[in-house]
């Protein structure tokens, strides 16, 4: 029986030589139904072309490093199975909307700055002494923010967001979802500190609710929901006199 093979096209871009990216085609064995797109890239790097550059780490959908565009859709390549594409070919390009550093590697700097700007940590007006015990929460209080805390910062939502693609000043889906995660946390008292960033015109109000960010999220987070709910909350805070209370 003939060996199963699959054609993989990957973006190549050497900033020292190329003026723009190009696609390079590789014909590789598809030996195992459990092979994922990341396995195909690893095969190419190990056996065909060691100069191919891409990010990856955990290979189990946790680290969020291996996000790329697979046949036009942002995916974690460690969770995208070759069997879902075979006998067709696969085209792997870098995540949309980000500057390409080399081959399939994008510049994450803008995302990291945005993430930092929303202060993604518990903010307290005054820290409780350790002896006072834990900040206890009920299951209902945890349920309020649980889904937004599943984000792994893979940036697929930014790659799927045409608003960010058209205007990269937009704070973006993951950063706003994470801000909401902390604003909804009963232990947190930092909503007022985050408001200038999330309620800014480049924050939630830039979003026109395309919703594709929630479709592509590999962890089931719903950033579109976080953004729309934040719009409502910030409006209520603005309109109602008691809204500015902590």
């Amino acid at each position: 029986m003939a060996e199963k093979r699959i054609t993989v096209r990957a973006t190549r871009f050497d900033p020292a030589k190329d003026s723009e990216p190009r696609l390079q085609s590789y014909d590789i064995p598809f030996s195992d139904d459990s092979m994922v797109v990341l396995d195909a890239l690893n095969y190419i790097k190990s056996h065909v072309d060691g100069s191919l550059s891409y990010r990856w780490s955990c290979r189990m959908g946790i680290c969020g490093s291996c996000g790329m565009t697979v046949n036009g859709t942002p995916k974690l390549t460690c969770s995208a199975f070759l069997r879902d594409y075979w006998p067709g070919s696969i085209t792997i390009t870098p995540l949309n909307n980000f500057p390409i550093v080399r081959d399939l590697v994008v510049d994450m700097e803008d995302f990291m700055e945005k993430l930092k700007s929303i202060k993604p940590w518990i903010i307290r007006k005054q820290e409780m002494p350790l002896g006072a015990g834990e900040h206890r929460q009920t299951m209902e209080q945890i349920d309020d923010f649980r889904q937004f805390s599943q984000c792994i910062n893979c940036m697929l939502c930014y790659a799927a967001c045409p608003v960010y693609g058209l205007d990269d000043k937009f704070l973006g889906p993951a950063a706003i979802a994470l801000a909401r995660r902390y604003n909804l946390d009963s232990r947190d008292q930092g909503t007022k500190e985050r408001l200038p960033v999330i309620a800014h015109s480049d924050g939630v109000w830039e979003c026109s609710f395309v919703g594709e960010c929630s479709v592509v999220c590999p962890k089931g987070v719903d950033p579109a929901k976080a953004i729309q709910q934040t719009k409502l909350d910030t409006s209520v805070r603005f309109i109602l006199p008691y809204g500015n209370r902590e």
């Binding site: 900033p15 190329d18 949309n96 510049d107 045409p162 693609g165």
Partner: peptide, 14 residues
């Protein structure tokens, strides 16, 4: 300093 390439958003993205 690294030179990067930022592809433009195509008009027909939608």
């Amino acid at each position: 300093a690294t030179r990067t390439y930022k592809p433009a958003m195509p008009a027909g993205w939608w």
